[in-house]
């Protein structure tokens, strides 16, 4: 009897070891990265092909990820380009009750995140609190309690006069949001948050370009978003989620409008500061964007944004 039990135990043991081995082979790549790592690297002006076979197309690397500059960065560069603060361009927090689906909550968490970034970069403390609270509500609705929780709100309130700390807290909150969603197999929702944030940043830029007299710098920053738009589409297409598909369709239409933006590079060798050892990439670029193209981009961004926030 003992011998029989031992045999059964041994068989089960072998099966368990085999299952362990197979499971490790099949399961060592988390869901989040499988969804994001999908496509080959391409010319940024070309559209990603979602049907691309990963193994065949990427012969120099195993996994390709696309990452999008944060709304904090976008608002920082338009500030440097001469933009001013104007709260009339923000999405009203009164709209929050309209966002009842997971998709609209995710997109508008991104939208409010961009508004929050804009307010904090321009040191608008009152609106920073208001938009942090709005982001907190939507994050809660999406089940993300770690990112914008009560303790984080307290940290925001304690650092209202410290812009650098505020920016760091906001940045950490979005990192927590992204990490939580990816960790919980909701990468497409994470992608929608990123898309909403990028689009709102672009919307703010187009509106501020209209309101700024010498707006060449802001207009150039808008034209450069042609590059990021390609990356964003490539990232979203890899999710193969119907909710994401609709957003991708809108972004593809926007990409068509951006097609007339010309970016010309003049290559120059990089140099390194002998003291700081920091390299500067000296290649320069010229952004060609006509008034008509800018108007078309502004109109298209307005259309997509209206669909998202209403």
């Amino acid at each position: 009897m003992i011998q029989k039990v031992n045999n059964i135990g041994m068989s089960f043991g072998r099966a368990a070891v085999a299952a362990t081995f197979l499971f490790y082979i099949g399961g060592c790549t988390p869901e989040g990265e499988q969804e994001v790592a999908a496509e080959k690297i391409q010319d940024p002006t070309e559209e990603a092909d979602a049907t691309t076979d990963n193994d065949g197309a990427i012969n120099k690397s195993g996994k390709v990820f696309y990452t999008i500059p944060s709304p904090l960065e976008l608002t920082s560069i338009i500030k440097k380009a001469g933009a001013k603060y104007d709260n009339s361009v923000l999405n009203s927090t009164k709209n929050i009750s309209n966002y009842v689906t997971e998709t609209s909550q995710a997109l508008n968490l991104g939208v409010y995140g961009a508004d929050l970034s804009y307010a904090s970069i321009f040191e608008q403390t009152q609106e920073t609190i208001v938009y942090f609270a709005a982001a907190h509500k939507l994050a809660d609705a999406l089940g993300i309690t770690a990112a914008f929780g009560e303790s984080t709100i307290e940290r925001v309130q304690n650092n209202l006069n410290n812009r650098d700390s505020l920016v760091a807290i906001i940045s950490d909150s979005y990192w927590e949001t992204d990490a939580y969603l990816k960790e919980n197999k909701r990468s497409s929702i994470s992608g929608l948050v990123v898309a909403g944030g990028w689009l709102e940043g672009l919307y703010i830029s187009t509106k501020l370009a209209q309101k700024t007299e010498n707006n060449e710098g802001i207009v150039s920053r808008i034209g450069e978003q042609k590059l990021t738009l390609s990356n964003l589409i490539a990232m979203l297409r890899s999710f193969e989620d119907p909710e994401v598909t609709e957003v991708v369709a809108d972004l593809k239409e926007l990409k068509d409008v951006f097609a007339d933006v010309e970016i010309t590079y003049t290559r120059q060798a990089p140099t390194t500061d002998p003291e700081t050892k920091v390299m500067t990439l000296n290649t320069t670029s010229t952004i060609n964007i006509s008034a008509e193209v800018l108007a078309s981009i502004t109109e298209k961004v307005d259309d997509i944004r209206t669909k998202i926030v209403n």
């Binding site: 060592c28 790549t29 988390p30 989040g32 990265e33 790592a37 690297i41 990427i58 120099k60 690397s61 195993g62 996994k63 390709v64 990820f65 696309y66 990452t67 999008i68 500059p69 944060s70 904090l72 960065e73 560069i77 920016v167 760091a168 940045s171 979005y174 990192w175 949001t177 992204d178 990490a179 990816k182 994470s190 990123v194 920053r221 450069e224 590059l227 990021t228 990356n231 490539a234």
Partner: peptide, 24 residues
């Protein structure tokens, strides 16, 4: 200031990964 996105993966010896991004 990081960009708020978690870009992490599990790699084995001999493996590689690429990240594409716009720098301003």
């Amino acid at each position: 200031i990081h960009n708020g996105q978690l870009n992490s993966t599990t790699l084995m010896e001999g493996e590689s990964a690429e990240l594409v991004m716009t720098f301003h």
